[in-house]
């Protein structure tokens, strides 16, 4: 009796504590869903009354911000294609070939990418991009993102490919497939779940990044949404909460859509299919 009561107490305390932590994390999300539909939204949480779409109307009229969404898509897709393609080929080679020191290559790249990228590298990156003459282009942003994300993407994918039995490809080769056929017919479909993970990860990274496009771009027509979001600040530097909330919701939709699409189409799981 005594024991079970103390267990109840412990469970109750744990549940309350967990709920409190949950609420702390949930509140901003609830605000994020409610505020865009509230004409008088402030930083405080309030249920929209009356429920309105007027914030969205104003945001849609801001052509700079709308164009920025398109720029974000261009930069994110460009970066994702480059990272996905290059990481797949590099990781496949690093996993399957017998190059001496191939492990060291990945670790050194990974080390440099985490130390060298980020704000510390901004000046050299700017100077390099400027020297190539790519300042103020989509390509500059895409290349810098690809360079920063590739080592980690390669690392994730190489680990994934290492876990896939070689006998898939070996059976294709013995059956008469050339290395190219083996890669596209057999290896690529089997690696696909890993590529999907890397692609989603890279997309989210590029989509949310502010500093790199802010430094490398000048023209308003090239700015991505992460930068354009500052157009919803008043000249005094205070945020216009209503519009900011509406734009933020629109801004986050592509990521949610991508996640749902990938989950529906591929599922975030790895499949085997080999008898062990």
């Amino acid at each position: 009796m005594q024991i079970s009561r103390s267990i109840y107490m412990r469970r109750a305390i744990f549940s309350v504590a967990a709920s409190l932590v949950g609420v702390v994390f949930a509140l901003p999300l609830v605000w994020f869903i409610f505020a865009p539909f509230n004409a008088r939204a402030e930083l405080g949480l309030a249920i929209p009354s009356p429920f309105t779409l007027s914030n969205f109307v104003t945001v849609f009229q801001n052509s700079f911000a709308m164009h920025a969404l398109l720029n974000s898509l261009i930069q994110a897709f460009g970066g994702v294609i480059l990272v996905g393609g290059a990481a797949t080929l590099a990781a496949y080679a690093l996993s399957r070939s017998s190059i001496p020191g191939k492990r060291a290559v990945t670790y050194i790249l990974l080390l440099f990418s985490s130390v060298v990228s980020g704000s510390a590298a901004m000046v050299p990156i700017f100077l390099i991009i400027s020297a190539i003459g790519l300042i103020d282009t989509h390509l500059a942003v895409i290349l810098v993102f690809a360079g920063g994300l590739l080592p980690t993407a390669m690392f994730i994918l190489r680990d994934f490919i290492d876990a896939i039995p070689k006998s898939y490809e070996e059976s294709a080769m013995v059956a008469g497939a050339s290395p190219i056929q083996t890669f596209f017919d057999v290896a690529l479909p089997v690696i696909r779940p890993g590529i999907v993970v890397v692609v989603v990860w890279a997309f989210v990274n590029i989509w949310g990044s502010f500093l790199i496009p802010f430094i490398l771009l000048r023209k308003d027509t090239l700015m991505p949404a992460s930068v354009a979001i500052y157009s919803f600040y008043s000249e005094a530097g205070t945020p216009i909460v209503t519009l900011l909330a509406a734009y933020s919701l629109i801004y986050s939709l592509p990521v949610i859509v991508l996640y749902l699409f990938v989950n529906w189409k591929f599922g975030f799981r790895f499949f085997g299919g080999i008898k062990s």
């Binding site: 039995p165 006998s167 898939y168 070996e170 059976s171 294709a172 080769m173 013995v174 059956a175 008469g176 497939a177 050339s178 017919d185 057999v186 479909p189 089997v190 499949f271 085997g272 299919g273 080999i274 008898k275 062990s276």
Partner: peptide, 20 residues
């Protein structure tokens, strides 16, 4: 010679059927 040019066939222990 590359395996594809040997005109052989092989049955693997783990079967290695293409899962897709």
């Amino acid at each position: 010679l590359h395996p594809k040019d040997r005109q052989i066939s092989m049955v693997f222990q783990d079967y290695a059927l293409y899962p897709h």
